[in-house]
């Protein structure tokens, strides 16, 4: 009896929280289908809903929508790949290799995250402008190929991996490099998956930098393009939310794909 009660309580919490997280999302989706005069009406009969807000985004012939999508995809892919590789390498070195300056480097990685980004907006732009990287893919990707958050994340994970397997690798005659690629990384699938999700998500939704670094429509990413489409009438929440919902779907797909690796990560390594 007590067990049953615990179970009921457990599932109440599990489902209850899901309602809290999914509810506002569904509500926004619902609003994204509303016609403008209905935005502030709580309940709208289903036959008054419209696809127009989504059509407005996808089918608008004035805006090079496919191009923005493609830009976003390229930029997010490059930035995610760069971060996954470089952050893992650095995180591994910070966790496992002893070299002069290691502690200082880790402190610096941490410290640069503590400076509010708003204060380096302008200097960064000036630098990229010097490099002639404004409005190019290089400008949208190269400065963002590594990130303190990701380095720190990977370091913490490598700290918690048992070292026995690495040592076995050394005994088998693998170099440091070989151990990293062949033993450590395959062991870190959950962390790599988490990192991929975050980097993709962060970059996909990123607005401030792409907005600053692009000057012509054909270089916009999705968030920048959508924003230019709304203009000042941001009180038209139905349009804004339709855009937000539309942008969210690719990230959800990436999440669904990579969250599987959390589980597989352990199952396939033979660590068990």
């Amino acid at each position: 009896m007590k067990r049953l009660l615990v179970r009921v309580l457990f599932y109440t919490i599990v489902i209850g929280y899901a309602v809290i997280t999914v509810g506002p999302f569904l509500w926004s989706l619902f609003t994204a289908f509303k016609m403008t005069p209905d935005i502030n009406t709580l309940w709208v009969p289903l036959d008054r809903l419209t696809l127009a807000n989504f059509e407005n985004i996808v089918l608008s012939d004035e805006y090079p929508f496919a191009r923005w999508f493609w830009n976003s995809l390229i930029v997010a892919a490059i930035v995610t790949a760069g971060n996954v590789i470089f952050n893992s390498m650095a995180g591994y070195a910070l966790a496992r290799i002893n070299f002069p300056g290691r502690r200082v480097l880790f402190l610096i990685v941490l410290a640069v995250m503590m400076v509010p980004g708003q204060v380096i907006l302008v200097p960064m732009y000036m630098l990229l402008s010097e490099l002639d990287w404004i409005n190019t893919y290089a400008g949208l990707t190269v400065p963002f190929l590594t990130q303190g958050f990701g380095i720190f994340l990977m370091r913490q994970f490598f700290l918690s991996i048992p070292r026995d397997l690495e040592e076995a690798g050394f005994l088998d005659g693998l170099s440091r490099w070989g151990v990293f690629w062949r033993i450590v990384l395959p062991l870190s699938k959950p962390a790599l998956a988490a990192q991929t999700i975050f980097m993709f998500m962060g970059n996909w939704n990123s607005f401030m930098w792409p907005n600053l670094l692009t000057t012509s429509e054909e270089m916009y990413t999705l968030p920048v393009g959508l924003n230019s489409l709304y203009g000042e009438y941001d009180a038209f929440w139905n349009h804004v939310l339709a855009g937000a919902m539309f942008m969210t779907i690719p990230v959800i797909i990436v999440f669904i794909i990579f969250q599987r690796h959390f589980i597989k990560g352990l199952a396939t390594t033979g660590l068990k």
Partner: peptide, 16 residues
């Protein structure tokens, strides 16, 4: 479900 709020951009969340 639990991850949904995180994927939605801050601006959209604020609007919601």
């Amino acid at each position: 479900a639990y991850f949904l709020p995180t994927v939605t951009s801050t601006v959209a969340v604020s609007v919601m």
